[in-house]
Simulated assay, not measured.
Amino acid sequence: MTTLVGGAPVGAATLRAALARAPRLIAVDGGADAVQGAGLVPEAVIGDLDSISPAARAAFADRLHPVAEQDSTDFAKARRTFPGPAIAVGFIGARVDHFLACLSELARGGAPCILLGEEDCVCIAAADMALDLAPGTRVSLWPLGPAEGRSTGLEWPIDGIAMSPAGRVGTSNRATGRVTLSLSGAPTALILPADALDAMLAARQMGPRRPGPPSL
């Protein structure tokens, strides 16, 4: 599994958490600076490379994979080039338009990918999911279009609720224990606290955790 590192601020603990579970390291444009700052070497640096610093460009000169077209984001370029399951850090917490573009890219489909930030982890929910969550864990659903579903294990069940971005959404719900979701309609983002990353990985069937995080 791959860790993608983007140009938004990335804390050392967040980067370690991603690499402990997804040890293949790919830098996305300006994310190369975060990788260099952590003392790591990526397998590749991909993007239009308009944000990478001269120092990182020189350090990773033999690993640069420029993609010049401007019809897609650097995140989309990385997902096309490295299409397997991924944890993406450095894509939450800076520009809102960049984050929304990442969310739209995830909604287009392909292998599952989790956006991991300091506070949250975000993915597109599968049609049917089971999440092993501690009681009280925040569970938020954000529909990217008209959607509906059924649930168990939520303090406020979603059964019979028509959700949409301009109507009712499912943010700030809480788990009462193990949560199951059955969703239909438009893609729906699932947002959990960052410390629920392993539960999200398991629910999206994104492979076993691998030990041995790199030293930062």
Results as ranks from 00 to 15, higher is better:
P42Y: 06
A101Q: 10
T152W: 10
G212C: 09
S51Y: 08
G177V: 11
G93M: 11
L197V: 01
P214I: 02
T14R: 01
A59E: 06
G90I: 03
V10W: 02
L103I: 15
I46V: 15
A34S: 14
R79Y: 02
R21E: 04
H98T: 09
I124Q: 01
R174L: 15
D29H: 11
A61R: 14
E105W: 05
I46W: 06
L40H: 04
V10I: 09
A130K: 11
D120A: 04
G212P: 07
P211Y: 05
R57S: 10
F60I: 05
V67C: 13
D97H: 12
F82Y: 14
G160I: 11
E118M: 04
A68V: 14
C102R: 05
H65R: 15
T188I: 03
L64V: 12
A166H: 15
T171K: 11
G109W: 00
D97C: 08
L131D: 01
P146M: 11
T81H: 14
R108E: 14
A111T: 01
L115F: 06
R168C: 09
I52S: 05
V45W: 09
A59V: 06
L49H: 07
S72I: 09
D33M: 12
L106G: 04
D33K: 05
G177N: 14
P54G: 10
A12E: 15
K77Y: 08
R63D: 11
H65S: 10
G37S: 13
F91G: 06
A8Q: 12
R95G: 06
G6N: 01
P9V: 08
M200L: 15
I46G: 04
C113M: 14
L106W: 03
T81C: 11
L15N: 02
D33Y: 05
D29N: 12
P42H: 07
T180L: 04
P211G: 09
L190G: 04
A78P: 06
A186T: 07
G170L: 08
D74H: 01
G11Y: 03
D132P: 06
A126D: 00
H65P: 00
T171F: 08
I92A: 05
A88R: 00
G47T: 10
A44H: 08
